[in-house]
């Protein structure tokens, strides 16, 4: 009898848990959709968000350039060394050029840039907006009859859409360059072999694919943290939680989007 009651209790708890989780998810989905629609509506107020967008883009873009180039450089070097380790004696050396360029442009450039920016931009946006929420600055804007969407959210999202693709292209270039130098030093590949290999497998779609991915990743590292920061609650602890949640959510979204976009654009 006691065991049955216990089992019933567990089932009830499980149901409550699932119910609560479903309600919370539905709530997030609804709020996120409303926020997104508000952002689209806010696009008409370009006089407000445009100057702030350039301000944000400058701060975020220059601030992230060094770390993005650094990581892309290391990724290019490691790809080159691994290509050498796997190919030497089995495949023609020019394949290294193909592997390095394709790996950087198709995958490492956009994904690594996205993940770095999820940490840099995502945490920054969530913490900024979260602090503004808990210190009532967002309420203050609203109380002055001004839209937080066009004053705070749109400039951040649009700045990300401007900056992330550009940074991704820089990362591609840097990874390719460092990979090339490393291949020359460690594998002894000639410039001609490297460029031949890189060009042999290259298609213009590869660059488009990289660019398209970077725009989606830009959306993930800006819109999600903005949503999380905008809905922050419970003081300093809430701001900390918002920043970490934003980074995790944006990073996971990037990996999910990576799979979906690859399947859609390159999948057979």
């Amino acid at each position: 009898m006691h065991a049955m009651a216990r089992r019933a209790e567990i089932t009830l708890d499980l149901r409550r848990l699932v119910g609560r989780w479903t309600l919370r998810s539905a709530g997030h989905a609804g709020r996120f959709t409303y926020l997104f629609i508000d952002m689209l509506r806010g696009l008409a107020e370009w006089r407000i968000y445009l100057p702030r967008t350039f301000e944000q883009a400058t701060g975020v873009g220059f601030g992230s350039l060094f770390i993005v180039l650094l990581v892309a450089g290391f990724a290019g070097a490691v790809t080159s060394l691994q290509a050498g380790y796997q190919f030497t004696g089995t495949l023609p050396l020019y394949y290294a050029g193909a592997v390095i360029s394709e790996s950087m442009i198709l995958e490492l450039g956009p994904v690594l840039t996205g993940l770095i920016l999820a940490g840099r931009i995502g945490a920054r946006y969530a913490a900024e907006l979260g602090t503004m929420r808990v210190t009532e600055q967002i309420d203050a804007l609203e109380s002055l009859g001004r839209s937080p969407i066009s004053h705070l959210l749109l400039p951040r999202v649009l700045a990300g859409l401007l900056v992330v693709p550009a940074l991704t292209m820089f990362a591609n270039g840097m990874g390719l360059f460092v990979g090339w130098i490393t291949a020359k030093q460690s594998l002894g590949i000639t410039d001609a072999d490297f460029t031949y290999g890189a060009r042999f497998f290259f298609r213009p779609l590869d660059l488009w694919y990289s660019l398209i991915k970077s725009y989606w990743f830009a959306g993930a590292v800006t819109v999600i943290p903005c949503y999380i920061g905008y809905n922050t609650q419970q003081g300093a602890e809430g701001v900390g939680r918002a920043a970490t949640t934003a980074v995790v959510a944006a990073s996971v979204s990037i990996l999910l989007l990576d799979v979906v976009i690859t399947k859609l654009l390159l999948g057979k």
């Binding site: 503004m132 210190t135 009532e136 600055q137 309420d139 203050a140 609203e142 109380s143 002055l144 009859g145 001004r146 839209s147």
Partner: peptide
């Protein structure tokens, strides 16, 4: 309409809520 109404209401927040 709400924005219009809010423009007629000044609100002084507990901790100032100034934009840092």
């Amino acid at each position: 309409e709400l924005s219009e109404l809010r423009s007629r209401i000044g609100y002084v927040f507990q901790y100032g809520a100034l934009f840092d």
